[in-house]
């Protein structure tokens, strides 16, 4: 009786093509690729990595830092440009037009991307470090921007320093949405590069509500959600040109 042989490792699938045809096929694919993608660059000297995608209308982002932003229902009291960790932010201060609002004064910090090549990175860490805050009660809120149909996620937390406590709302805004983590912007940016060969512009937004120390921030959630949606709408209006 012949012993059953040990089953050997499964053989890999093999295409029944002769070696020459495989190599000819590869040659064809590579030659087509060369002609389509890189031959024009040899001719004109314009390599694809030199003519990389840009942000359309990057000049529309500067006014978000240099000039004040109007929010409906709030009166703009003051605007200045401040420097945090060598980056420039636009600081806007508002007073409520509605005397029944839970918070009468708010501050808005805006940091549009300085240039095409800048990506969102350490803006939140810069702010926390500059203000020397103790952070607690972190949450993730969803802001619904009805006009642009965008669902924006934002970080909501309480920042306390020796002198003051704030309810803070933070996120990165881009025309089609928003999210506090740079990774989300990265993938939206990849999609816009593949589809339209342009970069997705971004603005770092931080909304500060002064609150009494050690107060629970959940009471401010509805106000913050509404304000956040309003601000997102206003910022996107400035970023995108009207058709």
């Amino acid at each position: 009786m012949t012993p059953t042989p040990h089953p050997s490792s499964p053989k890999p699938p093999v295409l029944a093509l002769s070696d020459r045809w495989v190599k000819r096929g590869i040659l064809l694919v590579l030659a087509t690729l060369a002609v389509l993608a890189i031959a024009p660059a040899y001719w004109t000297g314009q390599w694809p990595w030199v003519t990389s995608p840009q942000v359309e209308h990057i000049d529309r982002l500067q006014p978000l830092r240099e000039a004040g932003l109007e929010i409906p229902g709030w009166s703009l009291e003051g605007h200045q440009v401040i420097t945090i960790n060598k980056q420039e932010w636009g600081l806007n201060e508002y007073t409520a037009l509605d005397p029944a609002a839970p918070v009468q004064q708010i501050a808005l910090l805006l940091h549009p991307q300085p240039w095409h090549s800048n990506q969102p990175q350490v803006e939140w860490v810069d702010l926390i470090g500059a203000q020397n805050w103790q952070i607690d009660s972190r949450q993730r809120l969803t802001l619904n921007d009805g006009t642009n149909g965008a669902r924006v996620k934002a970080n909501f937390f309480r920042g306390q320093s020796d002198r003051q406590a704030f309810a803070v709302l933070q996120w990165y805004t881009w025309p089609s949405g928003g999210h506090p983590s740079p990774g989300r912007w990265f993938w939206v940016n990849q999609r816009s590069q593949l589809a339209t060969h342009t970069l997705t512009p971004w603005v770092a937004v931080t909304l500060l509500l002064p609150i009494p120390p050690l107060e629970d921030i959940t009471t401010y959630q509805p106000l913050t959600t509404n304000l956040g949606a309003l601000i997102h709408q206003q910022v996107v209006d400035v970023m995108t040109p009207k058709s």
Partner: peptide, 19 residues
């Protein structure tokens, strides 16, 4: 190996994006 052809095609598509 058939996967090899798939990878060459994927790599070509990635190269064509010119990004």
């Amino acid at each position: 190996h058939p996967l090899g052809i798939g990878l060459v095609v994927v790599a070509s598509l990635m190269y064509l994006t010119r990004l």
